[in-house]
């Protein structure tokens, strides 16, 4: 019980810190943090699918793109307020993801990875094809939304808070979903789908729904990015984006909620550091970072953090002369 209290206190402290950042960071740094939160939402979506449910996706950039374009087109064509475009993008991606998930049921492992990869390849080109709506390869230029209700915030500060709020809501919903009856069923399907069915789990329906929810998260992230960057273009949503999200998911910790945030920091900042270290071969440096991270933290950053956390709370409990708390399996439940 005390460990749970400590956890909640820790979460609140992190949230308080996050709320202070807009008043101490430069606009550019703030923009980077906003981007981290956007990635974190997308990666949580991918984690649900790949980490918790065991379905590989090399194509989540496609859902990110759909979310971004749904939002951008609604704002550009119909002047829908950006706030409304975000849930709409989520719902559309939910439906698209669910429908894609249905045929994907027949594919497993590497075959599913390839099918989703083809989605990532196709979507940027499809976007260019419907030039009338999407502005073709020129993309759509948007204006950054201003803070509502006369709040004394710059557009960047406002977007930071908006993104943070969406992140908190989606992480709360996601954590609830993953820790209850449905979450257990999602993991059970990954662990052994035959006995999951014998327990009464409709694994086809669950897998498609997880695909939908996963796509919805990633779509919301894409919609947020449209407003934050104030620009969408097909080439920002290429295959590399999909792979970047997968890297964030693995490095942060598959099947982990907090891992999505760690992974987002990694994919936002480590390429920049690599660039600082070597202008000539930043991707070589990035590759070294990747390998070192995987070697040192086989269960991702969240797994390593969870392990340290257990060690700390354990030693504290032992000092108090009580039995050690049962070890949570960090890489599945943190």
């Amino acid at each position: 019980m005390t460990s749970r209290l400590a956890r909640h206190a820790g979460l609140l402290a992190v949230l308080a810190l996050a709320c202070m950042l807009p008043f101490v960071l430069s606009n550019f740094r703030l923009f980077q943090f906003t981007q981290v939160y956007i990635y974190a939402i997308a990666i949580l979506g991918l984690n649900m699918l790949t980490g918790y449910n065991g379905q590989f996706s090399l194509g989540h950039g496609a859902f990110y793109a759909v979310g971004a374009y749904v939002s951008a087109i609604m704002m550009d064509r119909w002047h829908v307020p950006y706030g409304w475009t975000i849930p709409v993008a989520g719902v559309i991606c939910l439906v698209v993801g669910f429908l894609f998930g249905l045929p994907a049921l027949r594919l497993e492992g590497l075959y599913l990875a390839l099918a989703t990869f083809s989605l990532a390849l196709a979507v940027p080109q499809i976007l260019k094809y419907f030039e009338h709506w999407t502005g073709g390869s020129q993309g759509i230029v948007l204006s950054k939304p201003k803070a509502p209700l006369g709040l004394p915030l710059s557009p960047d500060q406002w977007l930071y808070f908006l993104t943070l709020a969406v992140l908190v809501i989606l992480f709360w919903l996601g954590a609830n979903l993953l820790r209850g009856r449905v979450g257990r069923a999602i993991v059970a399907i990954r662990d052994n789908h035959i006995s999951a069915e014998a327990m009464g789990i409709n694994s086809a329906l669950y897998k498609s729904l997880v695909f939908g929810v996963s796509a919805a998260y990633t779509g919301v992230a894409g919609a947020l990015s449209a407003s934050v960057i104030a620009f969408v273009a097909p080439d920002s949503f290429n295959v590399f984006l999909s792979i970047t999200l997968l890297i964030g998911s693995v490095i942060g910790g598959l099947a982990s909620i907090s891992g999505a945030i760690f992974g987002a920091f990694f994919i936002q900042f480590v390429p920049n550091w690599a660039q600082d270290i070597s202008k000539a071969a930043p991707w070589a440096i990035f590759g070294v970072f990747l390998i070192v991270f995987m070697y040192v933290m086989p269960f991702g950053i969240a797994g390593a953090v969870g392990r340290i956390w257990i060690r700390m709370t354990r030693s504290r409990v032992l000092q108090a002369g009580r039995d050690p708390a049962p070890a949570h399996h960090a890489h599945t439940t943190t």
């Binding site: 449905v182 257990r184 059970a188 052994n192 006995s195 999951a196």
Partner: peptide
């Protein structure tokens, strides 16, 4: 054996109650 290896013993048994519970996504 066809247990769910990453779930705890308790969670494994809780999955066994899936067909006797209703809550959805």
């Amino acid at each position: 054996l066809a247990l769910f290896p990453t779930l705890t013993v308790l969670q494994n048994v809780m999955v066994g109650l899936h067909s006797r519970s209703r809550s959805d996504f």
